[in-house]
Write a protein that binds this DNA or RNA. Structure first.
Length: 218
DNA sequence: GCGACAG
DNA sequence: ATCTTGTCGC
């Protein structure tokens, strides 16, 4: 069932508490042929959102399709409620794809969230598709040091609970905060992100969407 | 009350 | 996220 997108902190948290029960963290990936990436940029001083969705082949990571959708922004940015601000436009862009992807890489957290429903988990539950969260910075969780080389990692923890992995995707760059969104586990999420990071700090699908949503032509 | 806080 | 040129480094 759909839910409102314009919410205050209390209502947003209540919706997240209800949706988190639908998140599945067991590996359910079938054959992966296309991996989607998504990101949202803002224009007009934050009044308009531009959601970009890309679809790349697997293996090969060749760009096969991309879509951009503009939409008026209805929610301010509130830590913990990012998905309410960005998903409406992302869902529209995703609907424009010629076929659903087998996996979606998101710019933000998966379950590494106060209520375990970051934007990737939220998107996974709403679409039913496998999703992964790959964020550029931390929202919640603690971790030890991460080696400087590509592939080095440290578990992201909240006490004894495993939330994801802090992963160095390129030697010398700041690590990414990787966590499962829906239908896969922490280790599988980490492997897919690393496999998709061939040229940049961000996975290729996300990087391509990032370009379109910010300075690209949509 | 104070600090933290995805994009 | 966004406002913004040049600059340090591999």
């Amino acid at each position: 069932m759909p839910h409102p997108w314009r919410v205050d902190a209390r209502e947003g948290a209540a919706i997240q508490e209800a949706l988190r029960r639908r998140v599945r963290l067991a590996d359910e990936l079938g054959e992966v042929r296309r991996i989607a990436g998504m990101d949202v940029g803002f224009r007009d001083g934050g009044a308009t959102a531009c959601a970009a969705v890309t679809c790349l082949s697997w293996p090969g990571l060749r760009l096969e399709e991309s879509h951009c959708v503009y939409r008026g922004v209805e929610m301010p940015y509130i830590p913990g409620l990012l998905s309410f601000r960005e998903l409406p436009a992302v869902l529209d862009a995703l609907a424009a794809l010629s076929a659903p992807p087998e996996l979606i890489l998101c710019d933000g957290q998966g379950i590494a969230h106060p209520r375990r429903l970051g934007i990737a988990a939220h998107l996974g539950v709403l679409t039913g598709l496998p999703t992964i969260g790959a964020a550029k910075s931390r929202l919640v969780g603690e971790h030890g040091p991460v080696g400087r080389e590509r592939g080095a990692r440290a578990p992201l923890l909240d006490g004894a609970e495993r939330l994801g992995t802090v992963l160095r995707t390129r030697t010398g760059v700041r690590p990414l905060y990787v966590s499962p969104g829906h239908r896969l586990d922490c280790d599988t999420a980490c492997e897919w992100v690393l496999a998709c990071c061939t040229r940049y700090r961000l996975p290729e699908p996300t990087h391509a969407a990032d370009r379109l949503a910010s300075r690209g032509r949509c």
